[in-house]
Amino acid sequence: MIGIKFWSFFVISIIFGSLLWAQQQPHGVEPYTIASTYQKLKAQYPFVEPIRPLRSNKVKAKKNVVYKVDGTKKLRADMYFPKSGKDKVFPAVLLIHGGGWITGSKENLGVMAQHLALHGYVAITLSYTLSREAPYPASVLDIKTAISWMRANAEKYYLDPDKIAIMGTSAGAQLATLVGLTPNSAIYERKSPFSDEVQAIINIDGIVSFVHPEAHEEGKSAGIWLGGSRTENWKNWNEASPLGYVNGNSPPILFVNSAQARFHAGRDDLVSLYNGYGIYSEVHTILDSPHSFWLLHPWFGSTLGYTLGFLERVFGPGQ
């Protein structure tokens, strides 16, 4: 009898624990990784291959460096450096992963960061607060804190504090563009003596407005991040739209886009504003490409090439 009671309790405990665990997981959120992207797209694009980590003795890495402490929570970054003399300083690129503001990880952009380091940049991939943990503007504040942290530690990490670019992919591109167009903004006020300004923006297939007519397909994941639907929380949807912050002091910007029109929302209007102010911009669309093209060959090479060309134009020849 005791044995039966024990096993009954044991089974009930497992079932209850499983239900509790399931309730704590993000519902309907699939993993967003290089591997999952390959599995999703290989049937439609049978010629693709997933990108793989670079093997080179010319790149150094420092993983899981804490850039922000908030109570008991620690946010971390992976850093990639050109392997050269310690007296040199390098332009820096901060990379923001995508995943609908709800999933994804800094590791998704590790291969891109390695290649940037190989070409003479300090490249940093970032973890930030996802929307299931805290909604907008938590992730924006994290990224701005990371830029200030980079400047505070510029000498330690051999980076040039006057040559910082921010690069994002998908939702990360929206975040990167928003951060890049709101330097030291009172809207996103933080306590730091170091500026969160960047000198260049690289937008890889991310929208630049949630309220533009072209942004009609943004829905559930944006609503989770922005605290309600467009009609329920217009303030956040409008406030988080980078397009509204363009001015004569905005930094140069590069767009690399897929053939999927929904991820271009607001781009052409932003470029038109840039042209009016005489600020440099570039737009490249990779024909017949899916979203998340930057995680797969043959499109990774084109994305890297456009990025390096833009950075050289903005910051000068690499080291």
Rank of each mutant, 00 (worst) to 15 (best):
P252E: 04
V211P: 01
L254F: 11
F210C: 12
F194A: 07
L118T: 03
G278E: 07
A154C: 06
S192T: 15
A138E: 11
P317N: 12
P161M: 06
A265F: 00
A171M: 06
T37Q: 11
L20Q: 11
N108V: 00
S229F: 13
L19F: 15
K40Y: 05
D268P: 05
D70L: 08
R262Q: 15
K73F: 06
K220T: 09
F10M: 12
S84Y: 02
V140S: 04
V256M: 10
K42C: 01
W101Y: 15
L118H: 03
G168D: 08
N249I: 04
L95A: 04
S289M: 04
I124E: 04
L308R: 01
P91G: 07
V283H: 00
V314K: 04
R76E: 13
V59S: 03
F194I: 01
R262H: 11
T169N: 11
Q114I: 03
F293T: 11
Y274F: 05
L295N: 07
K83P: 03
G219A: 14
D142C: 05
Y38W: 14
G98V: 13
A113F: 00
G276L: 13
H27Y: 09
G85T: 10
D196I: 01
G110H: 02
F6D: 13
P193M: 07
G278T: 10
M112N: 03
S195R: 05
G248L: 02
D269I: 00
I102C: 05
Q114F: 02
I187A: 09
Q114W: 01
A222I: 12
